[in-house]
């Protein structure tokens, strides 16, 4: 395999493009120059740190440190799910439910891929485990947050219809089923769309990366297909468990709709 190494000067030249954007923002009074500068700096610092951390982890190949890094990724993603909810569950459920479902779903899928398809030596080698987890996690996170968002806003909006069904003797699951279906559809749509569009509209980043690194395109495609299937599995598993658990939390053993278990509405960011 061969790939072209980049040096600092290459990056600095490309960075001029961001400065150009900043200049445009000033000239056209878009008011974006500050945000642009902060975002660029954040990206630079965050990626550099991640690079250092990954390099260290790859040298150590320690199950403990790899596991801690994976856990930190899950916790950050859980925070991201929370930030995208308009109506959160009240109390610790808000963070716990989404993060818990994501941990299980992404964890199961990643371990499945590491132990059955990729089989690196050792199986938890961070060079494979962390990028794989990251890709599954990113998509599972999107699925869970879309599903939970649609569930909580749907139950709030359809409250009269859901209670109408309950009053006629439907069970809580039957009464909420239309909303649950809508939530799962919303959660899975991005994965379905991205599978359908992959290769025609966009070349996936991972595949592009492998090709740039000198891997044969046909081999890179195989990796990409594997990833897409894993992502679909993780998203489905995570969204179904989160939406079903959420719908149970928002109802009780006497088959009542319990919207009082949602935190008060807040303004969107």
């Amino acid at each position: 395999m061969s790939y072209v190494r980049l040096d600092i000067l290459d990056l600095a030249l490309a960075g001029l493009l961001v400065l150009l954007n900043g200049g445009l923002s000033l000239a056209l009074q878009l008011g974006l120059e500050r945000q642009l500068a902060i975002a660029s700096l954040r990206m630079l610092v965050q990626l550099s740190l991640v690079g250092l951390v990954l390099a260290t982890l790859f040298q150590l190949v320690s199950p403990l440190f790899t596991g801690l890094a994976a856990l930190a990724m899950v916790l950050f993603a859980g925070h991201e799910i929370l930030a995208r909810q308009e109506r959160r569950l009240a109390g610790a459920w808000a963070y716990g439910l989404g993060t818990g479902c994501m941990l299980v779903a992404a964890g199961v899928i990643t371990v499945f891929a590491l132990t059955i398809q990729l089989r690196p030596e050792p199986w938890f080698h961070p060079r494979y485990a962390l990028p794989l987890l990251g890709m599954v996690l990113g998509n599972t996170m999107t699925g869970i947050s879309l599903g939970m968002h649609t569930l909580t806003t749907g139950l709030t909006r359809e409250r009269a219809a859901v209670e109408g069904r309950l009053a006629l003797g439907f069970t809580r699951h039957q009464a909420m089923l239309p909303v649950i279906r809508g939530a799962l559809r919303a959660a899975l749509m991005p994965v379905v769309n991205s599978m359908a569009a992959t290769g025609l509209v966009a070349l996936p980043g991972m595949m592009t990366g492998q090709i740039l690194a000198g891997v044969e395109p046909t081999e890179a495609v195989k990796y990409q297909v594997l990833i897409m299937f894993l992502v679909a599995g993780g998203t489905g598993l995570g969204a179904v468990s989160a939406v079903l658990a959420g719908s149970r939390r928002l109802s009780d053993h006497r088959h009542r709709l319990r919207l009082d278990r949602l935190a008060p509405a807040r303004r969107r960011r």
Binding site: E158, R159, A160, A161, V162, E163, G164, R165, A167, L168, P178
Partner: peptide, 11 residues
């Protein structure tokens, strides 16, 4: 115990 609200829900 059939509850018929003033404004019923339709689904």
């Amino acid at each position: 115990m059939a509850y018929v609200p003033a404004e019923a829900g339709w689904w």
